[in-house]
Amino acid sequence: MATIITKEQQEKEKMVTLVSSDSEKFVVEQKVAEKSHVIKMVMNCCGIESPIPVRRVKGDILKSILEYCEKHSKGEAQEVMEKWDKEYMDKAEKDLVFFHDLMLASHFLHIQELVDLIAVTFAGMLKMKSPEEIRQKFNINNDLTKEQEEHIMTTFGWAFQPI
């Protein structure tokens, strides 16, 4: 007897459950989860029947990442996507800890588009800042000796000149 697969079932079959490090569950479409190369590989080898644990990523980060993946799996016009990406980044960069976690997670899950988007945004953030501002912002201790610092400044004198 032939099995009749209803539309609902078909839809259901494409869903996959992801579990964050703090046990939060997310049910998303397979094509959304596939945006992550790592999850895609897991789905390929283990199937989508059982929930996939994403141990290194916390719920709030995973939620935000899946939001990105979902938007990017729709195939919308480039202008729409660029605008959306910019808003997404504007929101993310307000909270530095969140931004940092998002960056780590995008690397860990291997979502190249997001890795690049974050890197470009980050570079834009850094670009206009002075070394001192960066030290303050990221709480970096300057462990270079005075001599080392002077050596760099003499070697790359042109970079330290005002425009």
């Binding site: 850094l126 670009k127 960066i134 300057n142 330290f160």
Partner: peptide, 15 residues
Amino acid sequence: RLPPKSLCKFMVISK
């Protein structure tokens, strides 16, 4: 992704 000028400047941030 940074311009070389920033890159050179950022060398003095830390070791």
